[in-house]
Write a protein that binds this DNA or RNA. Structure first.
Lengths: 336, 336
DNA sequence: CTGAAAGCGCTAACAC
DNA sequence: GTGTTAGCGCTTTCAG
């Protein structure tokens, strides 16, 4: 049997569709006994509103799409949760979408997007280049997360990666480290995240008068703990020397720690290790991981606020918000 | 200006709505030049179909909802990714929904669900009780993941938790461990996951003639690494003795390892540690974590197949599929 | 191969 | 307070 409709409920209760609609939507001015009668009909028939019809009629969905690369990277899982909580405070539902593996470029996520599915999109790109961003002309509310290029027309929330990466590098230098490696270079075209963190790392080295040694800029082999393990294991086997390792993110750091352990390198005595993201798991690694913590809750709240402005019709220029960050010092970088 | 509609494209191209619809939906029998003209109009106007209208007209969405507790628990992030990949092979899109923190019970997720939003739901409950399941009468395609009670009318994919937990406990016993603790008891009403794994643990102890010591069944304080740390730290401080610790899942195990380290307990020499889920991070913990690996890809594929049967109108009794599991032995349980 | 018209289920004016 | 009715943008018979 077909799902009951509004009109079925109306007939069952002996009222009009409008009245049922009023009850379903919690409209205040309905006589108590009428409301009661309608509610009984709803329960009796097992009526549930059809979201597509409602959306088509109202033009709104009450839903925000959060688009991430993949939820099996913990950082994306954590930011997606933060966004859901932030959106909920504004009465918005969140659905998380993941990029299709090995098919379309990230650009397509924004260009081939059906209308009417969500009211707005919060997107955390991973490989979007400056060119992609410049050509982006979304005709729906959109907020970007992460390391977008600043002078773009689209709203964006992120941290000052260059400054933060420099601060972490300085932290390592203050700890007495002199040959600091960076795990996070990428083949060109390098993503903005890697580029900016690498820039901050180089700036801090230069400011401290430390030599720039390209062999200590380790080339990534995937954004995963496994990839971190492989690269660091290969570097150690290849004779690369360093007394500190600054990793582009905590997942890579976890793999790096594993590789260092396997090669009998003690942390932090012989090599200090630092990461980025402050994942929930990071404090429980051995040793507990020093990391650059960005304000995820703040990022989420800011992104949702900017998006809701747009959903409410704001059409000004792209706004760029920086959120807080700090170096969280743990055992992996204590004393040389 | 308002978003262009199908009819706008039709007028622009000098054809009817039907023809534009044919082009948009890749219908084969359209004359090449007509198709070309329509496509030009689509590009010129920047037309994108309205998903709500299409869904209302067709009654289908091409979308599956994956409902999990929260994406910031890595297990859920990993299974959500596996489900997306499996669904994609069937031409279905996946949206991930998270439970609203601290409000409605899980039951509400299934009962208060709007129609027309998705074609089917794959739900991994965490706290659903046997009673909840018995009373569940969803009128939409639904597949449950995890440790649902077997004799339910709803399709379900999981592993044989009792057998698997017993196998892991036997693995620890074979390694020479005699006082094996279990981290994962819960206050009543205990979730099915904890209950079944605890049962398997007890059965294996009994089968090996080892005494049952309730003080070694550690009560959970949240399903997080932090919670695992707190419980194990308190147990050690309280004088609980054990030479192996079987954790309900890898996240708890990560916290447990951290607590053991902090208390100067060596792993695996003094205490062997085992987990469950085989998270991507688990092999990179120190020591590398022995874990019960369930077949996530297989779970995802099976769940999607069952769901698609239902979406295609299958109305038979609830089907229950068991997927493969195995003990993955790593350094955390090697030699006493 | 293309056009015309009737819905899909709901909301929102506008009457009453 | 409650009923009537005209769309929301698209698909889908059914003609032609």
């Amino acid at each position: 049997m077909a799902a009951p409709r509004l009109i079925d409920v109306a007939r069952h209760a002996g009222v009009s569709m409008k009245t049922v609609s009023n009850v379903v939507n919690g409209y205040r001015h309905v006589r108590p006994d009428t409301r009661q009668r309608v509610q009984s009909a709803i329960d009796a028939l097992g009526y549930r509103p059809n979201a597509s019809a409602r959306r088509l009629a109202t033009g709104r969905t009450g839903t925000i799409a959060v688009v991430v690369w993949t939820t099996d990277v913990p950082y994306f899982g954590e930011i997606a949760r933060a966004l859901q909580i932030a959106a909920q405070a504004h009465g918005q539902r969140v659905v998380v979408e993941q990029l299709t593996p090995r098919t379309e470029p990230e650009r397509a996520v924004l260009q081939n997007r059906d209308r009417g599915l969500v009211d707005g999109v919060i997107f955390h790109p991973v490989r979007l280049t400056a060119d992609d961003l410049a050509n982006l002309q979304p005709d729906f509310p959109l907020v970007l997360l992460g390391e977008a290029i600043r002078p773009t027309a689209i709203d964006h929330v992120g941290v000052d990666n260059v400054a933060a990466a420099a601060a972490m590098t300085e932290h390592l230098i203050r700890g007495g480290r002199r040959s600091i490696a960076f795990l996070g270079r990428q083949r060109e075209p390098m993503g903005e995240t890697s580029r900016q963190r690498l820039t901050g790392y180089r700036q801090a080295l230069a400011a401290a008068g430390l030599p720039h040694d390209p062999s200590r800029e380790l080339l990534l082999d995937g954004l995963s703990a496994d990839g971190g393990y492989r690269v660091v294991a290969a570097a150690l086997a290849g004779g690369t020397r360093f007394d500190a390792l600054f990793c582009r993110d905590d997942l890579l750091a976890a793999g790096a720690i594993h590789a260092l352990h396997d090669h009998g390198v003690s942390i932090p005595e012989q090599v200090a290790v630092a990461g980025w993201d402050d994942l929930q798991i990071s404090r429980h690694l051995t040793p507990s991981l020093t990391t650059l913590a960005t304000d995820k809750a703040g990022t989420a709240e800011t992104a949702v606020e900017l998006l809701i402005d747009r959903m409410n019709g704001f059409t000004g220029a792209g706004r760029h918000r920086q959120v807080e960050w700090r170096v969280v010092e743990r055992a992996s970088t204590r004393g040389p």
